[in-house]
Nucleic acid binder design. Structure first.
Lengths: 137, 137
DNA sequence: TATAAAATCTATCAATTTGGTAGGGTTTTG
DNA sequence: CAAAACCCTACCAAATTGATAGATTTTATA
């Protein structure tokens, strides 16, 4: 399941993607528009900025805006940024790999192969869902 | 990600599936064989029993055994039993549906449609991974 | 029938994660 | 120069997770 953070991030990105080109959105505007607690949203927007999905302008009339095309922001990326691995176990993960400590031998654990198949399928599907694809319905 | 419970459950089922037909496995035997903390495994086996994947015999020479074919136990079922919904949000779930409370209108939330696509793909993949498929490698 | 072995039940617990809130500080700009 | 916004750090309560502990019930058999 997605965390609230990831869900809010997607909704915030959706909000930004729906604005006119060159429009800068204030935090409070996004919070109201997407129904997200403002202070919580602040942290999320900072994460999105660190992830180079959005950028910001400070000072009066400042705010946030997309710096990545809505066609290029995928569910997979947002999931990884906020919720980490897409695979079901760390030993089957591409980006968050860790060895299974409870597997007796150092060989592959019995689950790994199957979970890598799941990961590939899920990843493929998640890379197909973009912010743009969520808008046009 | 899978919880330890779900992971241990899969490993325990794998262990049981690899035994001879009619063999009854004691908890301690499964715990040692699959490297699972014994007391924790006890709870998991009870859950698997309630889920009708295994049955048990009490008393001396008792233990656990599969009552569902290893070809019919899927990753999807184990995920649902221990970790709940497969969908990324409750509003996109088949078995654990709940309305999005933070969506302003009562209509579908903007994420729902995309997440249902992911759910379908993931579910299909997870239903293809059975205990039997994990054994033959 | 006593006893040993095994499942089963009920409670508890520490650590971590989650979903926030609070309160400032810093930077920019009218 | 002050307002408006970003930015940062800390804290907090509730829930979840990953167990452990101990008592009880059931069963086979010596």
């Amino acid at each position: 399941m997605l965390s609230h953070k990831a869900k809010y991030a997607l909704k915030a990105l959706l909000y930004l993607a729906e604005q006119d080109e060159d429009h800068i959105s204030k935090t409070i505007e996004i919070a109201d528009g997407a129904n997200i607690p403002k202070k919580f949203l602040e942290q999320i927007l900072l994460d999105l900025k660190r992830g180079r999905f959005v950028s910001s302008k400070q000072g009066k009339f400042g705010g946030y805006y997309l710096i990545k095309s809505k066609n290029d922001i995928t569910l997979a990326e947002i999931h990884r940024l906020f919720d980490g691995a897409i695979a079901l176990l760390p030993c089957a993960s591409l980006n968050f790999y860790e060895r299974c400590l409870d597997c007796k031998t150092e060989e592959e654990c019995s689950l790994r192969h199957g979970l890598m198949i799941i990961r590939d399928e899920t990843l493929k599907a998640m890379q197909n869902i973009t912010i743009a694809s969520l808008i046009k319905k």
